[in-house]
């Protein structure tokens, strides 16, 4: 019976409903376990010294100023871009609905590149939903329960992500399974990809929205006689250290309440 379940799960993805139902039972256990982990973090925050807090504040203030200045430029560029695209009679969507989710501090299968999030179908999370953090693409949702969901990181060997080189628009597929790094599949040896190139999501798969940073090219290996170059990419997202991620709804425009992506520059 268990063997039948295993096959059903692997071949037909037929057990999703069962998984979702049992995850309700698992949630209280995971919640209780994650309490001391998250609580410890809160404690660390509350006993941080005044000096540290002030230094932190200073740093964040500087960063905020920097980001705001850049955002002003981006707003101008965005309108200009829109106008130009209107002239070309093609449109582009900017900004999606987003929701912040916390990572539950619980264990999953050893070295399986998965994380458990504290948002589920009750919050509108769906299968295959893109997950990003402040630095780049993190992964996508693979199981959803009512209160929790599991996300597969982009470093998982099962994961493939359509990307393009930001510099020249060359498209490729970034796959996981290379430890902490990603690798590009089927890049011709003569393709113009250099170390240090930024890769962004191309949006071609229809699952991830276009334009989010994915990683930076760390190594390009061209072996004579082999038709494809071996390209190693370091993910931009802080996959191992992140505590909070953003769930995206690429189909929906940002709501004014959860409008995390829409800059409110005019407000000040």
């Amino acid at each position: 019976m268990a063997a039948a379940l295993l096959i059903a799960d692997q071949r037909y993805r037929a057990t999703e409903a069962l998984r979702s139902a049992i995850s309700v039972l698992a949630y209280p256990i995971q919640y209780v376990v994650s309490l001391p982990v998250n609580g410890g973090r809160m404690l660390m925050e509350s006993v941080a010294t005044r000096k540290e807090m002030m230094a932190d504040n200073e740093r964040l203030r500087a960063q905020n100023l920097l980001l705001k200045t850049r955002l002003q430029k981006f707003a101008a560029l965005e309108t200009e871009n829109m106008r130009l695209r209107e002239l070309l009679e093609s449109s582009i969507e900017v900004g999606e609905r987003a929701l912040v989710a916390d990572l539950l501090g619980v264990e999953t299968e050893p070295s399986s590149n998965q994380v458990v999030l504290n948002k589920g179908t009750r919050h509108g999370v769906y299968l295959g939903q893109p997950v990003v953090d402040s630095d780049g693409v993190t992964g996508q949702i693979t199981h959803v329960g009512p209160f929790t969901s599991t996300a597969m990181l982009i470093t998982n060997p099962k994961h493939a992500l359509p990307v393009q080189v930001n510099r020249n628009g060359i498209r490729a597929i970034a796959t996981g399974g290379d430890g902490d790094a990603l690798s590009l599949s089927f890049v011709p040896t003569n393709a113009d990809i250099r170390v240090g190139d930024l890769l962004i999501s191309s949006g071609l798969g229809g699952r991830f929205p276009a334009g989010y940073p994915v990683g930076e090219v760390k190594q390009v290996l061209r072996t004579p006689g082999v038709p494809f170059a071996k390209v190693t990419v370091m993910p931009s997202a802080r996959l191992a250290r992140t505590q909070q991620v953003l769930l995206l709804w690429p189909e929906e425009k940002p709501r004014s309440v959860a409008g995390l992506n829409r800059p409110a520059i005019n407000a000040e």
């Binding site: 268990a2 379940l5 059903a8 799960d9 049992i22 698992a26 399986s112 693979t142 199981h143 329960g145």
Partner: peptide, 17 residues
């Protein structure tokens, strides 16, 4: 076993088996 499978996001039935 099933509960454990879901909790660890393992292939469904691995721990049950």
């Amino acid at each position: 076993g099933l509960l454990l499978d879901v909790m660890l996001s393992a292939p469904m039935g691995q721990n049950a088996l």
